[in-house]
Computed example of a mutant assay.
Amino acid sequence: MNSKWRVLVILVIICVALLAPNTTNVLDELQLMQTIGFDAGDDDDVIGTVGIISYSADKNYQTTTLSAPSDSARHHRIRMDSMTSHPLHAGKLTGILFGADLSERGIFDTLDTYYRDPKVAARAYLAVVDGEAKELLENKYPFQQEEIGYLNRLINHNINRGNLPRTNMHLFMRAFYEKGKDPFLPLLVYTDEYIRIQGLALFKGDKWVDQLNLEQAFFFKLLTDDYETGGLIELPIDENGEQAVLKELRSGKSFSFNIKQQQPSIDIHVRVKARLSEYSGKHLTEGRLKEITAYSEKEMTKRLQKLLNDLQKKKLDPIGFGDQVIHRGPMDIKEWEEIYPEMALNATVSVKIIESGVSQ
């Protein structure tokens, strides 16, 4: 009797499995959104452009773009679905771009739709385009095959090996919601031949208000991330026009907050170990190497101090000093915003050249 019931239960399970609706997503029945760009349209409309990968039954694929205006990111998704022969799927979405006009107008309403979508990875990259996101995605670049996937690799490479600080959708939204920290994103430019990173777009709330070039981004990254093996900076090392190039950096930082003093201040100390890869002088002696180290410390301290002062004058705090001060207490965001423009920010940089495989 028990064995009969066991057989009956197994048969019921098999029948349920066979009759249940099959929701498996087959690649050749989907169109995968890999990159999406948004630009400002008329009035409050946005123009969305989707970079799509379509797979065929023989596992080949092709990339294409679709574009349409809409009054919201959610309605844009519906418009896009009405233009395709297969369902659009956001599971492979790796990046979201914002054109210059929309970035200046504000990106939160557009971004929030994708931030809340569980199919979209929180680590998807975001970037501002100095121009139109639509044009960047639709252009064909002779030296960059499959530009849709190229953007993800470009940004990751510059984070891991270059001067770009770590950034993604999750980090942007966390800075947006935090009190005492302003968001930032990579800034892209494009020509008829290539796409490149121009620097960093700085935000106040969800609006793009300022930017840093790649050299400034190098010093900015010293304050937000620790270099592990990347980065590159060219420095003048004396009054005779000689130049030195430091690369393959390892860095660390420490902040000392002196907020309760009559003159509030923050002391910033950055430690850099680097390889001297190029030197324009004739001979590199041990004595000259010490002079290069001293000049490097002086020049890097000067440039870092200038960056801090410029951000302070513009009342921008993308490094998040305010967030750290508020968490230490007792100070709220209003008090921080009152003292930040007037407080002393004191930067020092110490440099150690650990290798000098120099090409002269």
Rank of each mutant, 00 (worst) to 15 (best):
Q145N: 09
P183H: 08
E234W: 00
D109C: 03
P318Y: 03
L93P: 04
V12N: 06
S82G: 00
A90C: 01
P183C: 04
T65N: 06
R174K: 12
K298P: 08
R77K: 14
I259D: 01
P318V: 03
H269G: 03
D112A: 06
I36Q: 04
Q262W: 01
A294K: 13
N309Y: 07
R166Q: 13
K260H: 10
S54F: 02
P264M: 09
N60W: 04
P318Q: 05
M80E: 14
Q305V: 09
S356K: 12
N213C: 08
V325Y: 01
A344V: 05
S72Y: 13
V351H: 00
L102E: 06
S359N: 11
A294N: 09
Q211S: 12
E104D: 01
V209P: 10
Y190E: 13
E228L: 03
F255E: 04
S85E: 14
V129G: 02
K204A: 12
F38P: 00
V46P: 06
V272D: 05
L93W: 09
Q62L: 11
E132P: 05
I47C: 03
K315F: 08
E242I: 04
L97A: 06
I155G: 10
L126Y: 14
K179V: 04
G230W: 01
L18M: 13
S254D: 15
V189L: 12
E299H: 07
W208D: 13
I47L: 10
K273M: 15
R174A: 11
A344Q: 15
W336V: 02
K313A: 01
D45K: 14
Y190Q: 13
P69A: 10
E335K: 12
P142Q: 02
F203P: 09
K314I: 01
R153Y: 09
G51F: 03
P21M: 07
T191N: 13
I78P: 02
K134T: 10
V351Q: 00
N60F: 07
Y279C: 03
N25T: 14
K334F: 11
P21K: 12
A175M: 11
Y227V: 14
P264T: 03
A57R: 09
Q62G: 14
D210C: 13
D182N: 11
K260F: 03
I78C: 06
S72R: 09
D81A: 14
G329T: 10
L232P: 00
R161H: 07
D226K: 15
I148M: 15
Q216P: 05
N25R: 15
K253T: 00
I155D: 06
Y125T: 11
H89V: 13
C15F: 11
R6L: 02
K306Y: 02
Q261S: 08
G230S: 00
H76K: 04
E29C: 03
K92P: 00
S67Q: 15
G205I: 08
N309D: 13
S70M: 02
S296Y: 02
N168M: 07
T63E: 09
G281I: 07
V209I: 15
T224M: 09
I353H: 08
F143E: 08
P142W: 05
L8D: 01
I96N: 04
Q62V: 05
